[in-house]
Design a protein around this nucleic acid. Sequence first.
DNA 1: GGCTGACCCTTC
DNA 2: AAGGGTCAGC
Length: 401
Amino acid sequence: MTSLPPGFYALPLPILQLSLAAVLKCGQSFRWSAYPLQVKSEDPSMPTHEYRFCLRDRVVCLRQTPTDILYRTALPEPQPSATQQKLHEAETLLWLKDYFQLAIDLKLLYNDWGSRDKVFLSIKERFSGIRMLRQDPWETLISFICSSNNNISRITKMVQNLSKEYSPPLLSLPVPDGSGIEETYHPFPPPSALAKPDVSSRLRSLGFGYRAEFIHQTAKMLVDSHHGGKTHPQESSEPSELWLLTLRGYTTENARTELLTFRGVGRKVSDCILLMSLDKTDVVPVDTHVHQIAIKHYGMKGSAKGKTNMTPKLYEEVCTKFVQVWGQYAGWAHSVLFTSDLKSFALHGLPEASDPPTIQKGRNKRERDQDEITATTNAEGSASPAERVKKRARKRRTSPE
DNA sequence: GGCTGACCCTTC
DNA sequence: AAGGGTCAGC
């Protein structure tokens, strides 16, 4: 790196430790914008994209080279002095280290997972730099309520609409491709904004479907039980947001129990929140897709084509299996497999298991032979004795009060 | 307890 | 017609 783009600072970081392109658009966070940059040369050390994320008080802009993360902080008017700007950049750097969990050595984890599991070994070189983000629990809660029965592109639109509708614009910036077009950025709205009376009907008209009520009820529940409204303009978190943050100090089981009290939050969504915002590194959220991976490559029971009903019992079995295979950071490993399968999915069409030709978009056989996940079933029957399924009573209201 | 259908909306 | 689930009702 000889010269930095104007306003940017460099944080040295091998690309093996973090791939922004892979991590920011794979269904962990739904609020990053990506902008292609004009690349004049084919110099592979030049960034191809800029990524932006709106925090409560600033917009963080990132680019990546093979050796560095380039970062820049955009602040609302009035323009700060040079020294003020520097202070903000220092804060942004701290945020980056926390948000991307840079103290965790991903290379070490990849090696560990690869030594434990040959399926992982077969894909690790091709899908490097995929790590878990440490997101804000409130934003993660609402985002993943949106995720039920849904796909990444629609979830992304919904979360953007939510921010646009329920939090005021923070600032505008020209998009980095030089077209001169400006884009306006909104922070994620606080709980009090989504707890207001007519939120659910508005969300419905914005295309949230049945999730509209879930979001409203969840926000209201939080605000009501934590003395919640906001009294001061902005800048600070609301009590319920701070309370959600304290779940990081709970055991996984206790934190999950709390999460399950919210409307629209079942086992899968709660596990996403635990893994992606509450430091529960071994939690593996099991959706139908992950279940399919477990069947195809890890010898779990269930028909690979027909849809097996995901019962709580089966869910636990799949979870347990992955923790056995990958260990303490199973949830992190799962996201690598999940991402690799997403890509191979986009590339090769539906996964198949045995004989019946799943009619689907032409291609199959030939390309599947070079499919992303190729290793044999690292089977070994599901021999897991100890399974204290510590069932906790779900304290969910049956009727609104 | 475990199983079923409904639920919004988008897309293969 | 089914999807990266959850809820209510048997």
